[in-house]
Amino acid sequence: MFIAMNRFRIAPGHEAEFIEIWRQRDSHLAQVPGFKQFQLLRGASTEEHTLFASHTVWESRAAFEDWTRSDAFRAAHAGAGTRREIYLGPPQLELFDAVL
């Protein structure tokens, strides 16, 4: 199992808008070989930002890497970053191999 997470720092007051962007987004993941699961997670809020993470579970690192080179990946990210004022910097990608 392999997990890919992107952490997002969202400007205060834009949390609902960020969630709606993800709700309406067609990720194209359902038909991708090796894709298992997706969650959008909301973390702590501070005066500066609210933390969110997109969390995907894959059968393997290879399945994830194949997706990143696919037409489905390009289609899923075609409109990414169009509302730049809600993001406080770029997302932080974190990759994990399951060990237990």
Rank of each mutant, 00 (worst) to 15 (best):
M1A: 15
F2S: 01
F2I: 00
A4S: 15
A4P: 03
M5R: 04
N6A: 13
N6C: 11
R7K: 13
F8V: 02
R9F: 07
R9K: 14
R9V: 05
R9A: 04
I10A: 02
A11V: 06
A11N: 07
A11C: 10
P12L: 06
P12H: 06
G13P: 06
E15P: 08
E15G: 04
A16C: 05
A16Y: 11
E17M: 13
F18D: 10
F18C: 12
F18E: 04
F18W: 14
E20G: 07
I21T: 05
I21E: 13
W22M: 14
R23G: 11
R23D: 10
R23A: 09
R23E: 10
Q24C: 09
Q24P: 02
R25Q: 05
S27Q: 07
L29D: 05
L29N: 02
L29Y: 06
L29M: 11
A30M: 04
A30P: 00
A30T: 12
V32E: 03
V32K: 02
V32Y: 01
P33V: 00
P33H: 01
P33M: 03
G34L: 00
G34M: 04
F35I: 00
F35L: 01
Q37I: 06
Q37G: 02
Q37V: 08
Q37F: 14
Q37P: 01
F38T: 01
F38L: 02
Q39K: 13
Q39W: 09
Q39T: 11
L40F: 03
L40H: 03
L40G: 07
L40D: 04
L41A: 03
L41M: 11
R42V: 11
R42N: 05
R42A: 09
G43R: 02
A44Q: 14
S45R: 12
T46S: 15
T46L: 09
E47L: 09
E47R: 03
E48R: 15
H49D: 04
T50F: 05
L51I: 08
F52C: 06
F52V: 03
S54G: 12
H55F: 13
T56E: 04
T56P: 02
T56C: 04
T56G: 08
T56S: 15
V57T: 14
W58C: 01
E59H: 12
S60F: 10
S60K: 04
S60N: 03
A62C: 08
A63L: 00
F64W: 10
F64H: 07
E65S: 14
D66F: 01
T68A: 06
S70G: 12
A72I: 00
A75S: 15
A75D: 10
A75K: 12
A78V: 08
G79Q: 07
G79M: 06
A80S: 15
A80C: 03
A80Y: 10
A80I: 07
G81D: 06
G81R: 08
R83G: 09
E85R: 08
E85T: 09
I86F: 05
I86D: 04
Y87W: 11
L88T: 07
L88H: 07
L88D: 00
G89E: 03
G89K: 11
P90F: 03
Q92L: 15
Q92W: 10
L93E: 05
L93M: 08
L93K: 00
E94D: 06
E94H: 09
L95A: 00
D97S: 00
D97N: 07
V99E: 03
